[in-house]
Design a protein around this nucleic acid. Structure first.
Length: 441
RNA sequence: GUGAGUGUAGCCGAGAGGUUUAAGGCGCCAGACUGUGGAUCUGGAGAUCGGGGGUUCGAAUCCCCUCACUCACCCCA
């Protein structure tokens, strides 16, 4: 083993026990997406490089996996699911609008791997294309809320902000033209490094005391009262900011009507999001424990599709980060223990008895029960029970010469070792309740 | 891309230049228990100490390079 085989850096294998958890999560997401009327879409892992480039921002562009195909064409692995969606919408102009799609698929980023961040990871996106209404934005947030709640998350915070407000804040503070992004990047770290940390960083970047001071006049967390009402008066002269404030007020109202409790949302003026293409409301979800960064992220991007089609089409959406969500759920113990989906192991006593075992397994499967046959004609029940135990299969159907002669099956419960004899004809009826298509809680 | 740390059997992990023919635990295999798992006992297999080069009479132990992993920065799910 001079050169042990391994998966590429930052990319991982998912063994069955892991895949069961991931399927559980994506299954819940798919159900929620479809319940809200989003339809499935898939796109290639590879896009032409020019499709991907110049959409995310200067820093992010460097993290796109790029290479040449056999024909010398510059291509790249998709960096997210939003840009491919924009491409699709531009390419198929006849899609009825609003177009609501979801996509659950891997994306790639050539970053240095770290806690909660991988080079290959899955995003679960829901986006609405063709509506400028805040109904669409609120719906996206409701989808995120519903999905996380359905997974069993007891608490999380969806942070809301608006790019239009951020622009207004920068203007109010007197941030020089073209320096807004730099300022906002620092502001984004507020919850991480604190006000002092952000002030220090901004001063180090060369911004004046007055600029930084005015910035924090606006960013000051509320002692009481309403952030948006306060901003209304502070940014009274900035039409765009007023617009953004109005949007958030509307989102807030709709969210209430959609049944999303206020405790799960927070207007957070210091939340920025890194991607360039956002134009209006932006959102992300964080959990207190464990600290792992955001588990969802999204926002409105009214000009992205126009880059491809020449005609702007408004859009809004959010992504749910599969690996981070799985990581958090594990840390929180939100997964029921399950190493396998198989509910019953049917034993094979010997060559002569094997057909009986196969017949039983076939009947169980036809009834929808996940059933496995032990794949050897010898070895004894000892080995077969040890196998069931190791795999975590909860039930074993023992089928030896005695049972076959008596037209019975011995059902053994692996959890407590209890056994009972069941008439051969009643076994399937007895186990029908064991139908499983997914992880059970 | 920048910085720091780690790398010893499938996994965890002692050893820190010379009785190391490299502990121990988990797991694995076999037997006690030839129709019954998870407990216990006994025995067994499995490592040229990430890879390459160097220093030395002697290297898992020191130096250099390289690869991988972890953490932080940047950025982000």
């Amino acid at each position: 083993m001079a050169n042990p085989p391994q998966a590429p850096r930052g990319m991982r294998d998912f063994l069955p026990d892991r895949m069961i958890l991931r399927h559980h999560v994506t299954g819940v997401f798919r159900g929620v997406f479809e319940r809200y009327g989003f339809e499935p879409l898939d796109t290639p892992a590879v896009e032409y490089a020019e499709t991907l480039e110049g959409k995310y921002g200067e820093e992010a562009d460097k993290l796109i996996y790029k290479f040449e195909d056999r024909g010398g064409r510059r291509v790249g692995l998709r960096y997210d699911l939003t840009v491919p969606l924009a491409r699709v919408v531009a390419q198929y102009p006849d899609l009825p609008k609003p177009f609501k799609r979801y996509q659950i698929a891997p994306v790639w980023r050539a970053e240095r791997p770290q806690k909660g961040r991988y080079r290959e990871f899955w995003q679960c996106d829901a986006d609405t294309v063709g509506s400028t209404s805040m109904l669409a934005d609120a719906e996206i947030l409701a989808v995120v809320y519903t999905a996380l709640r359905e997974l069993g998350f007891p608490q999380f915070v969806m942070r809301l902000n608006n790019r239009k407000i951020l622009k207004g804040v920068a203007a109010f503070a007197g941030v020089p033209e073209g320096e807004e992004a730099s300022v906002l990047r620092s502001v984004d770290k507020l919850d991480k490094v604190g006000e002092v940390g952000v002030r220090t960083e901004l001063l180090e970047k060369g911004f004046g005391e007055d600029v930084v001071g005015r910035l924090f006049e606006l960013l000051a967390p509320e002692a009481s009262g309403d952030v948006l009402a306060r901003l209304r008066t502070q940014l009274v002269d900035n039409a765009e900011a007023q617009d953004g404030i109005g949007e958030l007020e509307q989102v807030r109202e709709y969210l209430g009507a959609l049944g999303v409790p206020e405790a799960f949302c927070r207007i957070d003026l210091a939340m920025v999001r890194g991607l360039d293409y956002y134009t209006g409301p932006i959102f992300e979800t964080v959990v207190e424990e464990p600290r792992i960064g955001s588990i969802t992220g999204g926002g409105r991007y009214d000009h992205l599709i126009g880059i491809f089609s020449g005609r702007d089409i408004p859009a809004v959406g959010s992504t749910l980060g599969l690996e981070r969500i799985v990581d958090v759920m594990e840390a929180l113990g939100l997964f029921p223990a399950a190493k396998t989906l198989t509910r019953v192991l049917v034993t094979v006593f010997d060559t002569a008895a094997a057909p009986e075992s196969l017949r039983l397994a076939a009947e169980l499967r036809a009834a929808g029960v996940c059933a496995e046959v032990y794949l050897a004609e010898k070895g004894g029940f000892r080995k077969q029970l040890a196998y069931a135990n190791a795999k975590g299969i909860p039930l074993v159907a023992l089928l030896g010469p005695d049972e076959i002669a008596r037209r019975e099956v011995t059902l053994r419960n692996m959890a407590d070792g209890s056994q009972e004899s069941v008439a051969r004809g009643e076994v399937v009826g007895r186990l029908r309740g064991e139908v499983v298509g997914r992880l059970r809680g």
